[in-house]
C-alpha cells in the first residue's frame, strides 16, 4: 500500500498578508447605504459578503460589517467610512494588524476545513462568510477561487498554520476508503 501513497497535501496552506481590515459597527438599516458607498461595495445580506475581486464587504453580525481590502487603500477607506458615519452613531476602526489570514486551496480544501470547523464545509456556499472556530480558536471562513480563505487572530497565526497543515496531511482525505 505504501508505494501507492499520495504524497500531496490535501490543500495548500498559504499565509496571506497585505490586507487591510476595517471593522464597522452601526445600525445597518440606517447607515447601510452610506457605508456601502463608503466601502465601494454593495451591502451584503445576512451572513453574506460582496466583493469586486479586490475588496470584500462581509456581514459579521446585525450591526457589524468587515471591510477587507488592499492595505494601501486602508487609510482612505477608513476616512470614507468615517465620513459615511458622520452624524450617525457608528464606529469604523482599523483591525488590519489584529488578524492572520490563510488561503486553503486545492481540490480537497473542504476536507481540511471539515476536520477543524463544526460546519458543513463542502456545502459552504460562495458569497457567504461563516464565523465559527477552527479547532480551539475563533475564525471566519469564506470561499475563494480554488478553496477557502480563513482569518483568525494574529496571536494564533502559528497555531492556525499548524492545525491547518496537520489537517492537510497527505493521504488523509475524507473520501471513503
Amino acid at each position: 500500500m505504501a508505494d501507492t501513497q499520495d504524497l500531496t497535501p490535501l490543500a495548500l496552506i498559504t499565509p496571506v498578508t497585505g490586507f487591510g481590515m476595517i471593522t464597522i459597527r452601526a445600525d445597518l438599516d440606517r447607515a447601510g447605504e452610506a457605508l456601502a458607498e463608503g466601502a465601494g461595495l454593495a451591502l451584503p445580506d445576512r451572513t453574506g459578503l460582496t466583493t469586486d475581486g479586490s475588496r470584500m464587504l462581509a456581514w459579521m453580525s446585525p450591526d457589524e460589517l468587515l471591510l477587507v481590502l488592499p492595505l494601501a487603500e486602508r487609510n482612505e477607506a477608513l476616512h470614507a467610512l468615517t465620513q459615511a458615519l458622520m452624524g450617525e452613531h457608528g464606529l469604523a476602526v482599523d483591525v488590519s494588524d489584529a488578524r492572520a489570514v490563510f488561503d486553503v486551496t486545492g481540490p480537497r480544501a473542504a476536507d481540511v476545513i471539515a476536520k477543524l470547523a463544526p460546519v458543513d464545509a463542502a456545502m459552504l456556499p460562495e458569497g457567504h462568510l461563516r464565523r465559527t472556530r477552527l479547532a480551539q480558536t475563533a475564525a471566519a471562513i469564506w470561499r475563494i477561487p480554488g478553496g477557502f480563505r480563513v482569518t483568525g487572530f494574529r496571536s494564533t497565526a502559528d497555531y492556525l498554520q499548524l492545525i491547518l497543515t496537520n489537517a492537510a496531511l497527505p493521504g488523509s482525505g475524507l473520501a471513503p476508503r
Binding site: 451572513t47 446585525p62 464565523r131
Partner: peptide, 12 residues
C-alpha cells in the same frame, strides 16, 4: 436568531 446560523453547542 440574529444571524440564522444553526450553531452547535461548542460555538455557543
Amino acid at each position: 436568531p440574529c444571524c440564522g446560523i444553526r450553531a452547535e453547542e461548542t460555538e455557543l
